[in-house]
């Protein structure tokens, strides 16, 4: 658009001076290149191809991200009976909390790496599923590892915060930002950042071993409420305050 406008402006000047310039222009006919017309200038925007989206395939190829079907298949294969009965999710129910799925194509073939969190043992679990053979290839687990939170974990964190007396800070920030008294979580969208205590941090030193988050909450009318000093400990189901 800006390009088009510039040419229009240029042509305006050219029109005004066209009569006086005519004699000179005809004399210089061979030397002066013709100015591009507005349409030519507009068309000068280089084009890239614009392929139509295709239906998502069942299986990906090489470095493709995991497809919906591949993730579904891998999740089924990853959930061993031990995990289903032994581990616990963020809501305290049986079965691990599902976090994420990544493709590994650097080894031979395509593998799905699935990450789960077991709130019972505070361990991160990695299940590697070979998509070709349809088998669980490898399992790993370790404490003290905290990848980003799932959407469900963010929602549970918000519930825990609102149920705690320390959410008074949050509610006050809500009123300050929106001009309205806090009347419930309807319309709120929580963004959870994993919080891990650094050696000098005070107030939530268990975080890192425990799974903790800081929340940024967006209100229905677009305001952001941020109380970074309040830490939601999802493992301990409690609120901590950084001092």
């Amino acid at each position: 658009m800006s390009r088009y406008r510039k040419w229009g402006w240029g042509l305006g000047i050219a029109t005004v001076t066209a009569v006086t310039a005519y004699g000179l222009a005809s004399w210089q006919a061979n030397a002066a290149p013709a100015p591009p017309t507005p349409s030519a200038a507009a068309n000068a925007q280089p084009r890239v191809s614009d392929p139509k989206p295709v239906a998502e395939p069942v299986s990906g190829k090489g470095s493709d991200g995991l497809t919906t079907s591949e993730v579904e298949k891998a999740r089924t294969l990853a959930l061993t009976p031990e995990l289903t009965s032994g581990a616990q999710n963020v809501a305290g129910e049986a079965g691990p909390e599902y976090l994420s799925a990544e493709v590994d194509f650097e080894n031979a073939g395509r593998q799905a790496e699935l990450y789960f969190y077991d709130y019972k043992t505070d361990k991160l679990i990695k299940q590697v599923v070979d998509l070709k053979t349809g088998k669980l290839a490898k399992s790993f687990s370790a404490a003290g590892m905290q990848p980003p939170a799932s959407e469900r974990e963010s929602a549970v964190a918000l519930d825990l915060l609102l149920a705690d007396p320390q959410s008074a800070d949050f509610k006050e920030a809500f009123q300050k930002a929106t001009g309205k008294q806090f009347a419930g979580k309807d319309g709120l969208v929580a963004t959870a950042h994993i919080y891990k205590a650094k050696p000098a941090d005070k107030g939530a030193s268990q975080c890192g071993k425990s799974r903790c988050v800081q929340l940024i909450v967006k209100t229905a009318d677009g305001h952001f409420i941020n109380v970074p000093g309040l830490i939601i400990d999802l493992s301990g189901r409690k609120i901590a305050r950084l001092t």
């Binding site: 280089p46 191809s49 392929p51 989206p53 990906g60 190829k61 090489g62 470095s63 493709d64 799925a101």
Partner: peptide, 29 residues
């Protein structure tokens, strides 16, 4: 054919004749 599907391939030729080809995907982090 790069080591990914056509939908994950970008192959474009610029006006000066240079062609770039690559595979792309989105990683959750």
């Amino acid at each position: 054919q790069p080591p990914c599907s056509e939908a994950s391939t970008v192959r474009e030729t610029l006006p000066n004749g240079t062609t770039w080809q690559l595979c792309w995907r989105i990683h959750d982090r």
